[in-house]
C-alpha cells in the first residue's frame, strides 16, 4: 500500500505526542490511526487492532444526546467533517461497550493538504463538564 500523505503522517506524529484522545480517518471515515489515550474510549489499542473500517469502529461506542437518546451518526462532528470538509464541535455522551456513559466534547477538523486536496479528518475528544 502506498505511503500516506505527509499531512496525514504529521497529524499522527502530533497525536502520538498528545495526552488527549485523537482519531484520524481517511476521506471515507476508515479509522487509520488512534493514539494511546483513545484506548480509554475504544477499550483497545492501535497496536492490537490496526486500522479499522468505518463499519467496525463506529459500533464500538454508542453516542447519546443530552436526553441519553441514541444520536444519529450524521450529527457526530467527525461525520459532519467528512461530509462537508469543515471543522465541527459538539458535546454529547458516549456509551462504551462496557456500558459506561461519559460526557465528552469532540472537535473535528478536515486535513486539507498543500495542494488543496481533502485527505482525511481528525477528531479530538475532550473530557468536559459543560452542559
Amino acid at each position: 500500500m502506498a505511503a500516506y500523505e505527509i499531512e496525514i503522517i504529521l497529524n499522527r506524529q502530533l497525536a502520538d505526542c498528545l495526552s488527549i484522545p485523537v482519531f484520524i480517518t481517511d476521506t471515507i471515515g476508515n479509522l487509520i490511526y488512534y493514539n494511546d489515550p483513545a484506548e480509554k474510549i475504544f477499550g483497545t489499542n492501535f497496536e492490537d487492532t490496526g486500522e479499522m473500517p468505518v463499519e467496525t469502529w463506529s459500533t464500538i461506542f454508542k453516542p447519546l444526546d443530552e436526553f441519553r437518546a441514541p444520536m444519529p451518526p450524521e450529527q457526530l462532528p467527525l461525520v459532519k467533517t467528512l461530509n462537508d470538509q469543515q471543522p465541527h464541535h459538539k458535546i454529547f455522551w458516549i456509551e462504551s461497550m462496557k456500558g459506561l456513559a461519559e460526557k465528552i466534547a469532540v472537535t473535528s477538523y478536515p486535513i486539507i493538504g498543500r495542494a488543496g486536496k481533502f485527505l482525511g479528518a481528525v477528531a479530538i475528544f475532550w473530557e468536559t463538564n459543560e452542559i
Binding site: 502506498a2 500516506y4 502520538d16
Partner: peptide
Amino acid sequence: GLTGLLTDTKWIS
C-alpha cells in the same frame, strides 16, 4: 515524531 522512524512503511514520509 515521538518515537523516531516508524517501521510501518505506510507512515514514513
